[in-house]
């Protein structure tokens, strides 16, 4: 028997845990909102407290088989089980997403709405991919593997790549609008972009190749100007945005953690 194969007691534990989770969720849903909210807040607080304590408490060496130089504190070993718990919840929610898709497309077929053939295509794809995915896991023979490869690697991955390649055309049309000279800022943007683009390509670098590679004149070679733009003003602006985002993230995280968040789904 493989080392990690689920044994009898393991499956029993998983089922028991799943049943308990469903019971707890059901109970939460039955509770009036006045009682449900404090419970959810308390769970959120405890979860946040765990993460903060794990991050801030002093660390000491905790060597593992994979990483002999690992450090941590007494909470660190439970980080992975908590992560697995999150993944288990995610598994449940994928089912919710599929149910929503089936509801939306099912209704469309029943109504015979315009474009309902797309909904039929959705159901066919869903059933086909699910069946082949399961078959390939249960009976991993060459036929099943090939069908799976044709559907996943052959079709889906290439469709993904097609969508991604469209971005190239969108970049051109967006750049055209952004670089049109309408104001001082747009002109600055155009000039900067031109220098960066020229500095990136060999033709651009050829334009100033006659300037010496050392001394003052090296600074006005196009690739030097490009590097300066990217490394100094661009990095400074990106870091400034990053600092602001970090503080904003901290503020929102604090509000959620301490139950101070107001509006939308947090409070009425």
């Amino acid at each position: 028997m493989p080392v990690n194969a689920p044994s009898g007691p393991h499956i029993g534990m998983i089922l028991l845990f799943a049943l308990c989770s469903v019971a707890v969720l059901g109970l939460l849903m039955l509770l009036p909102q006045k009682i449900r909210r404090p419970i959810i807040r308390a769970i959120t607080f405890l979860g946040g407290l765990y993460a903060a304590a794990e991050f801030f408490l002093p660390t000491y060496p905790q060597p593992t088989a994979d990483n002999p130089e690992a450090i941590g504190n007494f909470l660190t070993p439970s980080v992975v089980p908590f992560g697995n718990f999150t993944n288990a919840i995610l598994g449940w929610t994928v089912g919710l997403g599929v149910i929503n898709l089936c509801q939306v497309h099912g209704k469309r077929i029943m109504k015979g709405a315009a474009g309902s053939f797309n909904s039929v295509a959705f159901f066919l794809s869903l059933i086909l991919m699910t069946c082949i995915g399961i078959l390939q896991k249960i009976h991993p023979n060459p036929l099943n593997k090939n069908i799976y490869d044709v559907l996943f690697t052959g079709a889906l991955s290439n469709l993904d790549a097609t969508m991604f390649s469209i971005v190239a055309f969108y970049i051109v049309s967006a750049a055209y609008r952004a670089f049109r000279i309408r104001s001082v800022e747009a002109t600055l943007l155009l000039v900067t972009a031109l220098i960066v683009m020229l500095g990136q390509i060999s033709i651009g670098q050829w334009l100033t190749h006659w300037l010496p590679m050392t001394g003052f004149w090296h600074n006005i070679r196009i690739e030097s100007i490009r590097s300066w733009i990217l490394e100094i003003p661009n990095s400074a602006a990106t870091r400034a945005i990053g600092f602001g985002l970090g503080i904003g993230l901290l503020a929102v995280a604090l509000r959620i953690w301490l139950g101070l968040e107001r509006g939308s789904y947090f409070d009425s």
Partner: peptide, 21 residues
């Protein structure tokens, strides 16, 4: 841009708690 994204809910709702944050 930047932290304005995290300030948005405060700005829109004018809720004192969020404004303080």
């Amino acid at each position: 841009i930047g932290d304005e994204f995290y300030a948005a809910s405060a700005y829109l709702s004018r809720e004192p708690t969020l404004l303080g944050s």
